[in-house]
Simulated assay, not measured.
Amino acid sequence: MTIPMKQFKLHKLTMRLKNPFRTSFGTFQEKEFFITEAIDYEGNRGFGESVAFSSPWYSEETVMTNLHVMEDFLIPILKENEIKHPDQVTELFRPIRRNNMAKAALEGAIWDLYAKRENLSLAKALGGGKKEIDVGISIGIKPTIPDLIEKIHQFVEEGYKRIKLKIKPGWDYEVLKEVRKHFPDTPIMADANSAYTLNDMDKLQQLDELNLMMIEQPLAHDDIVDHAKLQSVMKTPICLDESIHSIEDTKKAYELGSCKIINIKIGRVGGLTEAKKIHDFCQEKGMEVWCGGMLEAGVGRAHNIALTTLNQFVLPGDTAGSSQYWEKDIIKPEVVVENGVIDVPERPGIGYEIDEKAFNHFTEWTKNYHF
């Protein structure tokens, strides 16, 4: 049985975050992205979301390179091939090097369409079994430590299961030490976004005093070898993020001892199929995983929720509620967190409806590709 697609649509949206988000590589508040839409002949609609930023900070991909690759290479591949299952899409896209976020944006829409055609929730279509998932929150770099402490208090009161704090040289040990003093028992992790080198080893080893859940991607964005050297002298688990683009990267990191935890981001690894492969390998090896966020709007957030229902996602992810980031999201109901928990929707596909009024408000343009 095939997935008979009639057309694909690319919707270009821009939404404004409630507050500027600051990391070691930049600060931004406007988020532009694509919602991808796969439509079959019965009128079923599947939705995906691109996660690349406007500038090549996090990775080499950007919003506009995503458009180029989707429009000129990936959509033509989908037009030329019969697709029976979303798992095929990864192989069809393999001749196109990297550009994982562009690939994931299209593959996500096909997964959602497939699940709706099969009358399954996306979580069940992926093999997930959880009815609810634990979530944490990610906090960007703040102007002062008291500002940061106040923000953490707010999220701890709201019941988030762990707090992720962005760090960089000059905003690291002393900040985290002060945070730990105020929150001695709160699960806290630090995210460096590749801001350090092995020359900072002594400084990073200081973090072992603070009983952190993990330190995420302290060294270069494309490194696996130096992280192994660092992990060998630290008791704090290292989590790899930017370095992991595939199941092959994951296997190498495991074999080298580069980390103890993997952050799986759907966009970074090229889609849900590859994310599942990484999950399954980590489950086999007993390596903990969690689902990272890319400041997604509602569609991308829904995909993250579905993925997190797989068994080896044993650590709280970054999928906070819609209201933490947006005055108005593009789905209904919006994603709601209660006491650090999200109930997994059971409706077919991503489990949320598009809020057409909000969607149209944020949409700058739409392109149609007929099959």
Rank of each mutant, 00 (worst) to 15 (best):
R117G: 00
I264S: 12
Q29K: 15
T27I: 13
F281C: 04
L126S: 09
D318L: 05
E296L: 02
D249Q: 09
A358H: 13
D318Y: 08
A123W: 11
E82R: 08
W57L: 13
W171M: 04
K164Q: 05
I261N: 05
K31A: 02
Y41M: 03
D318Q: 10
K285G: 00
P4E: 15
S243K: 12
E284S: 11
L212E: 08
K260H: 10
K357A: 13
T36G: 06
I110W: 07
P184G: 10
I137P: 09
D241L: 05
H227C: 06
N368D: 13
I167Y: 13
T250D: 02
G43W: 11
E71P: 00
L122T: 02
N119V: 02
P4D: 14
N263L: 02
P348R: 09
S138R: 13
A275R: 06
L106I: 15
A102W: 10
I215Y: 14
K252D: 01
E248L: 07
I145L: 15
F21A: 06
F28W: 15
H227R: 11
L74G: 10
T36Y: 03
G267L: 07
V335R: 05
A52W: 11
K285C: 04
Y352A: 05
G286K: 12
H361T: 12
L176F: 11
E49S: 12
I330Y: 01
R94A: 14
E60M: 02
G48F: 05
Y369R: 11
R94F: 07
F8R: 07
H85P: 00
S121M: 06
L17N: 10
K164M: 01
R45G: 01
K251T: 01
I3H: 04
Y352L: 05
Q217Y: 06
I77N: 06
L92W: 08
V89D: 04
I145C: 04
S55L: 10
G293Q: 10
